[in-house]
Each structure stands twice: as structure tokens, then as C-alpha cells.
């Protein structure tokens, strides 16, 4: 190799590149500054939640804690007060779990069957309903808030967890149906035809052929729904009672309470606790999350 190179004269091999070219400095410099700006709030949340109140009052919010204390976390989880209840965010956490789990399951089941029916079993009028559904995704929730209150009251579910499950199923339906319909449409149609010739019917094809092939899209839908429902505030505050408030509503009540001294460290611990579930999902799921939001962006 060496003698070969020596035989050539003049420019050869790759273009000379300086590691610190102006282009690289601009690109990486900008990205580093932006990344710093994006990470700052998370950092401040963490350090604040680990400080004691005296240190917060004296010090600087960016300074790392001199003395690390986990007391704010304990307090936020088990003792913080909202109104008369003083059992901390734990109540909201468990409420949110109780809301999120059935909502995710029910909404995904219904939407996947819808999407499957729309993709493979076209019937007259299906497209009309689907168009209404997609337009529904753009209607401000405020327009439909009160009619749903009346409907839930009529069936006796207003204020209950199951009422909220229905609400999440309804409002998750447009985007999830779209997601599943597009996915099922992308599967080879021959597969569906072959199954029909083999005598499989609606549910047979759904459970035996479509479901096993659609695991990734179910995971995407799950990520979309878990973060969406966990982060919901509006439906929680409208359709539940203080006892059944989801975590976001309870968090807001704890932090924005007007009574007593503001304990910023407890507030930040509570905020972090509430953000923890979607954050963990985000960091674990990576590319699937990106796929989910790209598909779910229509939800707005």
C-alpha cells in the first residue's frame, strides 16, 4: 500500500477536512446551545427537588444541591395536600393508572377493529363515517364537552372512572382508527383474499392473521395512548370528582394552591413524578415513539 501511494503525486485520497471547520462549528455549536436550552428545565427540576427549602431561598436555581435530601419526594408522594386530602400525589398516581390501563386497552381494541373493518371489509357508508371521524379530530374538545356530560349522566357514569374511559376511547378513536386503517391497508391484500378463500370469516381473519402481523403498530398505538391519556388534563378535570382526579389535575392543584407557604422543592418533585411515566416510555421506546407522534400528530 505504501509504495502505491508514493507512486502518485498531487491531490489524492479524501478531500482534506479540518475537524473544526467553520461549517462544523456552526452546526455542532447551534445544536449544543439548543440542546442545553432543552435540557435546562429538566436539570432545574431535578436539582430543585433534591434541595431543602432554606437552600432554595438563598441559592441559585442552577446550582447543584449542597446537601441532597429526598424529603421533598417523600412529601410529594405521600403528604402533599390538595384541599382536604393530605395523602400526596400517590392517590393521583393510582387514579391515573386505573384510568390509563382500561382506557388504553378499550380504545386500542375498538380502534383496531374499526381500522380493520375499514381497510378490508369496505361497506357502503364506511367512508362517510370515517371522514366524519377524521374531521372530529379537529373539532375543539370544548364544543363536545357538555353534550358528553349529559350523555354520561344519562347512562350513570358521570364522575366515574369508566365514564372517563369512554371519553378517552371516543377522543382517541380518530387518530387510532386512522393509524390502524393505514397499517392494515399496507398489508398485502392477497393475504386477506387467501384467508377468505380458505373460509376464514371476519373475526377469524382479524385474530389469526391480522393481529399476529400487527404487533409493531399495536406498540405504537399503545405508546401514543399511554402518553396521551396520562398527560390529559381537560377531561380529567371535567369528568372526574376530586376523589378520582388523575395525577395531572392533582399536581396542578398541589402546585397552584393558594394556601400555605410554597414549597418549591416539593412542587418540583411532584412535577417530576408526574412526568416520569411518559418520560420513561419516551426514553425506552425511542424510534417507535417518533413513529407514533408522526402518525398521531393529527391529534394536535
Amino acid at each position: 500500500m505504501a509504495d502505491r501511494v508514493a507512486a502518485l503525486s498531487g491531490p489524492q485520497g479524501p478531500r482534506p477536512r479540518r475537524r473544526f471547520s467553520r461549517r462544523n462549528i456552526i452546526i455542532y455549536g447551534t445544536l449544543a446551545v439548543v440542546a442545553f436550552y432543552y435540557l435546562l428545565p429538566l436539570y432545574v427540576m431535578i436539582v430543585t427537588s433534591l434541595k431543602g427549602m432554606p437552600e432554595i431561598r438563598l441559592g441559585n436555581i442552577f446550582a447543584p444541591p449542597v446537601e441532597i435530601t429526598f424529603e421533598p419526594w417523600v412529601k410529594a408522594w405521600a403528604q402533599a395536600c390538595t384541599g382536604l386530602n393530605c395523602d400526596g400525589l400517590s392517590r393521583g398516581f393510582w387514579n391515573s393508572v386505573q384510568i390509563t390501563v382500561p382506557s388504553v386497552i378499550v380504545s386500542i381494541l375498538i380502534a383496531s377493529v374499526n381500522g380493520y373493518a375499514l381497510a378490508n371489509w369496505r361497506f357502503r357508508g364506511a367512508d362517510v363515517f370515517f371522514t366524519i371521524l377524521i374531521f372530529g379530530a379537529f373539532i375543539p374538545y370544548q364544543v363536545m364537552l357538555y353534550p358528553i356530560v349529559i350523555m354520561l349522566r344519562e347512562i350513570g357514569l358521570y364522575g366515574s372512572l369508566w365514564g372517563l374511559v369512554i371519553v378517552h376511547t371516543i377522543f382517541g378513536m380518530p387518530i387510532l382508527t386512522l393509524l390502524f386503517r393505514n397499517y392494515f391497508t399496507s398489508l398485502p391484500e392477497e393475504l386477506f383474499k387467501a384467508a377468505r378463500i380458505d373460509g376464514a370469516r371476519f373475526w377469524g381473519i382479524y385474530f389469526r392473521i391480522m393481529l399476529p402481523m400487527s404487533l409493531p403498530i399495536f406498540v405504537v398505538a399503545m405508546i401514543l395512548q399511554v402518553t396521551g391519556i396520562w398527560n390529559d388534563f381537560l377531561f380529567g378535570v371535567v369528568y372526574t370528582k376530586p376523589d378520582t382526579y388523575p395525577m395531572t389535575v392533582q399536581l396542578n392543584n398541589i402546585v397552584n394552591t393558594v394556601q400555605g407557604v410554597r414549597e418549591y422543592n416539593v412542587n418540583m418533585a411532584a412535577t417530576l413524578l408526574t412526568g416520569l411515566v411518559p418520560l420513561v416510555i419516551y426514553f425506552v421506546s425511542g424510534k417507535l415513539f417518533v413513529r407514533g407522534i408522526a402518525a398521531g400528530a393529527v391529534k394536535g
Binding site: A35, P41, M45, N231, D232, N252, T274, I293
Partner: peptide, 16 residues
């Protein structure tokens, strides 16, 4: 890094 805030709720964002 640029996308993680999107995973957080508006409530958490507002409070931070």
C-alpha cells in the same frame, strides 16, 4: 434531547 419535552404534559411544562 429535542423531542423529550413533547412527551411531557402541558401541566408539567407550565409548572416547570
Amino acid at each position: 434531547i429535542l423531542l423529550y419535552p413533547f412527551a411531557l404534559s402541558f401541566i408539567v411544562t407550565g409548572l416547570v
